[in-house]
Simulated assay, not measured.
Amino acid sequence: MRRILIVEDDVIICGGVKLFLEQRGYAVETAYSRKEADACMQHGFDLILLDRNLPDGAGLDYCRQLRGSMKVPIVFLTAKDTDEDMIEGFRAGCDDYIAKPFSVELLYQRIEAVLRRSIEDKNHARFHYKDMTVDFERMQVFLSEEPVKLSGTEYRILELLIRNKGRVVTRDTILQRIWDCDGNYVDENTLSVHIRRLRQKIEEDAGNPQYIITVFGIGYTFGEEA
């Protein structure tokens, strides 16, 4: 049974949405403040309905806080419905935005759509190729089921190449997309160093790579040359 947390200080809205969703097979918990929501988080949820205005802090700030520690889908419930308000919500990390007053049937359909996307994302959260497994959700890399310790920049380079498997990623593209852990831009020489170190960690023979393939004069590709 999928679990939903409603974080909403309006008792009537909270109770009505809870009853409606329970009738459609969801397990629902409610919280009327950020403090109460924090106490519920240990239970684990498939989706959070979050009001933007809470008695002990802004829902936007809470959304950003949650995004820093979990990937559970978040849907805002709010009376603030201007384009600027919605853009602000999406920038804070929400997955959808429902303006009050709303139809509970519409809310239900939007929840179903967000959960479908979440399930699809989880199905693509692990990548397997030869002896390598990458867990994108946890940012972990395994070779023959043994963990490989990569730096933040090394991981981002590897993920970028994997996400573009079958295509050549130019050096310029990598330079535009990848920043080192100190926030300094990665120049040509530094990029070459990161590629070499990454190969030393993941390739059985760094001189004859099977994962990160150089396309001379252009850039790199993952696996068989594109």
Rank of each mutant, 00 (worst) to 15 (best):
L5P: 00
L106D: 12
D81N: 13
V17N: 03
S33T: 06
F20K: 10
I87M: 13
R67P: 03
Q23L: 15
M70S: 08
D85P: 00
Y32H: 11
I6H: 00
Y32V: 10
A37P: 02
E36W: 05
C63H: 00
L49W: 03
F76Q: 01
V104F: 14
I98S: 03
F90N: 08
G16N: 15
Q42W: 12
L77Y: 02
D96I: 03
I87W: 08
I4H: 03
P73V: 01
D9P: 06
C63L: 04
G59A: 05
I74S: 00
I6Y: 02
V17R: 02
R52V: 05
E8N: 08
F20S: 07
N53G: 06
F90S: 05
D95F: 01
E84S: 14
I74Q: 01
Q42V: 13
L106F: 11
L106N: 15
F45S: 00
V7E: 00
D85H: 06
F20I: 08
V7Q: 02
V75F: 03
S69I: 11
V75T: 01
D46C: 06
V75Q: 01
M86C: 10
G93S: 05
D10S: 13
R64N: 04
D96Y: 06
I87V: 14
T82K: 10
R24S: 14
L47V: 07
F102K: 09
P101H: 09
V7A: 04
C94N: 04
A92C: 09
G68I: 06
E105H: 15
S103Q: 11
Q23S: 13
I12Y: 13
K18V: 05
A92P: 02
V75N: 01
L106M: 13
E22G: 08
G15V: 13
D56Q: 10
Y62A: 06
G68H: 09
D46V: 07
R91G: 13
T30H: 07
A39P: 06
A79I: 09
M86F: 08
C14Q: 15
R91T: 09
I74A: 03
A79Q: 09
A99M: 07
R67V: 03
D51N: 09
V17A: 14
A39T: 13
D96P: 01
M86S: 10
F20Y: 14
Q42T: 15
Q42E: 15
R67H: 05
D56G: 05
G15M: 14
P55D: 12
V72H: 02
R24C: 11
E8K: 03
A31S: 11
D96K: 04
A92I: 02
Y26W: 15
F45A: 01
P73I: 05
M41R: 07
E36F: 10
V28Y: 06
P73F: 04
I13P: 02
E88H: 12
D56A: 05
Q42R: 14
Q109D: 12
D96M: 04
L106Q: 12
K35E: 14
Q42I: 14
A27K: 15
G93F: 02
A37R: 02
Q65E: 13
Y97M: 06
T82I: 05
A99S: 10
K100C: 07
A39K: 14
K80Q: 14
L21D: 00
F20H: 11
G15Q: 15
Q65G: 04
